[in-house]
Amino acid sequence: MLRDITIGQHFPGHSPLHLMDPRLKLVLTVAYIIILFVGSNFLGLSLAVIFLAALYLVAGIPLKMIAKSLKPIVPIIALTTVLNVFMMTGAGRPLFQWGFLRIYPEGVRYAVMIAVRIVCLIAGTSLLTYTTSPIVLTDAIERLLKPLARLHLPVHELAMMMTIALRFIPTLIDETEKIMNAQKARGAQLDSGTLRQRIRALVPVLIPLFISAFRRAEELATAMECRCYHGGEGRTRLRQLHMTGRDWLMAAVCIAVLALIGASGRIHL
């Protein structure tokens, strides 16, 4: 049951997108999101959609994965669309009127654009996690945020926390399953009863889990000290990130396309 939970789904592969420098991917994703929300016409948005679809094809990720990643936010999209349709007031005559509810063409236009933007936002960020393993992504974040360490932001510590969290998720899932089985063997009813009863039945699972997590944390801290861990200062890394010729080429292509999308989004049709 717990095995189905996947965090930061990753599809290993060897497409140009998979092999791209993670820092570059991260920066381009952020740029894409900004352009998505800056552009204000349908031409720009359509180009953005086409570009993203092309990237999915290059990465070899089935398009149905987009549908899967969108599933949890369908209610949000529906809510914002409905709100926008009814809340936007336009200059001309309403398309539809019923009591105090009025629908203006501007409202419809705006609602559609927002919906498309949210879909692109989710699909775009999902593409990043589909093509980049969480550990590489953490690495990229640490390196991109490094300049902020000068402002005394705990960049290394954050990255270390993320790494350790990723490392311990499977271990703690295993442990939770073990504890659940142990409690079931003692007669705990975890899968039946009212919602209230089921939540209460989880308490004897969570308490041992937390105690064990604290004990693990303490042992891990000792083991890290034994291996000379003393924070991010003077630390070197095994894996080095280098921008290759292909990375620069990809960067140039993507920046050109993003510039085109950005520019077309500003044309007044």
Binding site: I135, R167, L220, M224, C228, L238
Partner: peptide
Amino acid sequence: IVATVVEEDVAFALEN
């Protein structure tokens, strides 16, 4: 074990 990949874990002390 600190890292999510074997070789990165082996490298942990040397990184430090």
